[in-house]
């Protein structure tokens, strides 16, 4: 086993770390950086709970190695809130529309939707359903997540000048 020195940014802040060959990105974020908002639900790439953004595109952090993020920009749920504490419009929409129950799948849903709404400012409910089809939720039956996403789209559009 070798330790690899990596430099990356996480939520905009520079991070330097030494990581094992086989350390998954999810475990690195959770246990080495203590960013436990990224959750692990299956570790075989199906449930989507560990979804984060790597260089602005969504990825399953259980299916990447920490060492692979050398030089890249990682964004997690902890990076959504503004520095003054203002919730991201998606977070606010989830809160106002009962978009979560146990909250375990929620960070993955949020990160998936950050990417999706960035590309699709005016989605239909069906578009949202397809977008989150790689994220399993056992609590909500998805409906209020879909409603939250649609509400978030509206809020984001209103934010735009």
């Amino acid at each position: 086993m070798t330790l690899h020195n990596i430099k990356l940014t996480v939520n905009g802040l520079p991070v330097e770390a030494a990581v094992d060959d086989r350390l998954t990105l999810a475990d690195f974020l959770r246990h080495q950086l203590n960013l436990t908002g990224t959750h692990i639900g299956c570790e075989h790439g199906v449930c989507g709970a560990c979804t984060i953004l790597v260089d602005n595109v969504s990825a399953r952090s259980c299916l990447m190695l920490a060492v692979q993020t050398d030089g890249l920009a990682v964004r997690t749920v902890e990076g959504l809130q503004a520095t003054d504490g203002t919730l991201h419009p998606l977070q606010a929409a989830f809160r106002d529309n009962h978009g979560l129950q146990c909250g375990y799948c929620t960070p993955g849903m949020l990160m998936t939707l950050v990417e999706f709404l960035g590309e699709n400012p005016q989605p239909s409910a069906a578009d949202v359903r397809e977008a989150i089809s790689g994220n399993l939720c056992r609590c909500t039956g998805y409906q209020r997540i879909v409603e939250s996403a649609l509400d978030a789209a509206k809020r984001l559009n209103e934010q735009e000048p």
Partner: peptide, 21 residues
């Protein structure tokens, strides 16, 4: 009343605390 849940803010900001956290 359908008040907003008091549980939600930590859970949507990544500050929830599950056992593995």
């Amino acid at each position: 009343k359908s008040v907003r849940r008091i549980e939600d803010v930590p859970l949507i900001t990544g500050k929830g605390r599950f056992v593995d956290d």
